[in-house]
Amino acid sequence: MESLTTSRNGFLRGLLGTLGVFLLSGIGKAWGTAPRDAGHGKRPLKPGEHRWGMVIDLDKCTGCGSCVVACSTENNLALGNPQEASMGRIIRWLKILPSHEGEFPTPKQRLLPMPCQQCDIPPCTKVCPVYATFRNEEGIVGQVYSRCIGCRYCLNACPYTCKDFNWKAPVWPEEMRASFNPDVSIRPKGVVEKCLFCHHRLQRAKEEAVAEGRPLRENDYQPACAEICPAKAIVFGDLNNNDSDAANLSKDPRAFHLLEELGTEPKVTYLKEGA
């Protein structure tokens, strides 16, 4: 019994000791090295590093929906059906969102293609309890489907409401499985999914660049929506590269962000309609 008591105190002392050592060393390390970028929050980038962003020119955009379909095909999105549509459960990573102002005979309308805004300070990654959503080093907000527990907190925290949830397992007729893009996994039921700026394309472009022994070029990597846009209203590129169209357009006087006042710093920039 005596020895038991001693060891109990020993545990305590040892534990507090480790905690203290950890605290001190942790703070020391945080000062000594640049913090890595897997969580949320951003850091200044060095030239040559990438910060992928998108500019959508609403003056050119016609709301045709090609981007929506291209995104769906590229990312093997669930097909949808009337029941899901009436329940508001259609999964589309990129949606055309309408808004109306005014009345007949002078109404105004805005059709706004909305992918994930890829915030630099994402409200969704903050609240994830299991690291299933995170902001990667190049600014893309990712989602780990196989770790997600489906609590849907990130969906509720997102002020843009642009993530989707798999209410049930997607239904795929056997014939259509042949059309799966092999670069993108099929999501199971009960997990959250979202636009990843076609991250698999970035990975492929990087692999190709490495194989060819050259740095990644500006146009090597385009998400499906930007690639297909018939009006060329979607411009995608590296915001950290001053020569890229995306970087320049994002500084256009017409540029604005959705819900700018919330300080989420989206990397999807819109250009206002009008001259």
């Binding site: 090609s66 095909t73 059309s179 799966f180 092999p182 297909i228």
Partner: peptide, 25 residues
């Protein structure tokens, strides 16, 4: 497994309409 427009093609210059994008279906 994928459809995209041909950037040099004089008609569509790399773009596609929703139907073209859905032709795999």
């Amino acid at each position: 497994v994928g459809i995209s427009g041909i950037p040099d093609h004089p008609t569509n210059q790399g773009g596609l309409c929703p139907k073209g994008a859905a032709s795999l279906q």
